[in-house]
Write a protein that binds this DNA or RNA. Structure first.
Lengths: 227, 227
DNA sequence: ATTCGTAATACTGTATACAAAATACTTGCA
DNA sequence: TGCAAGTATTTTGTATACAGTATTACGAAT
């Protein structure tokens, strides 16, 4: 009796937020919950429970889980439902290797394909990020950092590349979000970013690729201890 | 009344084939149907019709569609269901650029990571492929060709890389499957493969990467006319 | 006390039913 | 005849119901 109320109320709330279909809403909602650690790695997902929590029935929730399973954020065990996927240190290292390669590729392409406005936008993101660095605002810094990397990939104007890059980035995001580097490493990362932006503005593909290479290799060193 | 029978019969038949869950079956089934052109690009998918055709109800079918949507093989239009995704020439070119980069990366890693047995397996696949080439058996040749490329990626022992590679390969497969090159280009492709295998056996990372580079660049030239 | 077996319970997998949206059709009117 | 509006039908989206499977708890036997 109470469940009907809960369901209706929840449904209304979610529908009001956006025009997307319900399973789409749930996908983004669950993705955030997983990335932010609201759902722990290895944790089993009980459809009834989670559905009631979100105020939706099992049907769209299950559809969302299938979607996330294809993204690799949850694992589907036959007859035993979904669990939040847990990544090993090697998994994360492997992902970062691929991410590094993809960003290098994107950087090279961007040097010839990107518009001046696009590069200028990256520059302004970078400047804002540096300001947050000096202010010691780690969360804001982190968000802009992500945006810059995603933005460089976007400059390559290659949607499959951007898509796949986003896929892997959403997986490591969970790990990186937790990892907070020390002050000296943080400073190093900012310096690397400066050289990256400079190479991009000079449209120097090889230098940009090299700088991205070392930056992302160092990124792995920075995060390794956390995993 | 007939629908019940159909549903039951279909269910039983599929369940007998394998132990996987039904939506998993449907995913692989639909993926094949899309790749083999059984479902045309741009074609709208009517859930009732397709479900009856496969002998399943809408629920697992919809779950399968969500999975394939995340894979990028179908597109989900809100309130209007699923359509088979259609790729532009640029899309395919972009995918091949990424595939090329990933295979080069995989090749480089494989030169240090692969076991001797793994390399020997690729060699035997190659030899079998050459035999099919001389016999003029295009379909068998094509299948082994795919297996070799997938196999080289597998040698890198990097599962995210293999996963992403497979994702993009399944998309271009549809296109490549249609494209049949002329005799002279076919011969060129076989020769390139020979050099690739040789470099792999020599564990010469740079040569292997270079050979994969030209091979896959040529591959795009070969398929371009079709798209 | 431990282990095996059985029953109870809980959860997933699939089908069906109902509601809302979109599409197609028909009828009325200019 | 052409267009428009309203209705009918089809189709998607969501919820619920039912069936099958795994897990757990409890009891009996060694």
């Amino acid at each position: 009796m109470a469940s009907e109320m809960t369901g209706q109320a929840g449904r209304r709330t979610l529908a009001t937020i956006s025009r997307q279909s319900l399973h789409g809403e749930i996908v983004t909602r669950l993705r955030d919950m997983i990335i932010e650690g609201d759902l722990q790695p290895g944790e089993r997902i009980y459809e009834n429970q989670l559905g009631e929590e979100l105020g939706v029935s099992r049907t769209p929730l299950r559809e969302a889980l299938k979607f996330l399973a294809s993204e690799g954020l949850v694992e589907l065990v036959p007859s035993r439902g979904a669990v939040v996927k847990r990544f090993s240190a090697k998994d994360v290292e492997d992902m970062l290797i691929v991410l590094r390669s993809m960003e290098m590729l994107a950087g090279r392409i961007a040097c010839t394909e990107a518009s001046n406005e696009g590069i200028a936008q990256i520059r302004s993101l970078h400047d804002a990020m540096v300001k947050h660095y000096h202010a010691g605002e780690r969360l804001e810094y982190y968000k802009l950092n992500q945006q810059i990397h995603t933005g460089i990939v976007a400059l390559a104007n290659n949607s499959p590349l951007a898509e796949v890059h986003g896929l892997l980035q959403s997986r490591v995001k969970r790990v990186r979000f937790i990892g907070h580097e020390g002050a000296e490493r943080w400073a190093g990362a900012v310096a690397e970013h400066g050289r990256i932006i400079a190479a991009l503005e000079a449209r120097d593909a090889e230098t940009l690729a090299r700088e991205l290479d070392v930056h992302l290799a160092n990124g792995w060193e920075r995060v390794k201890s956390v995993v």
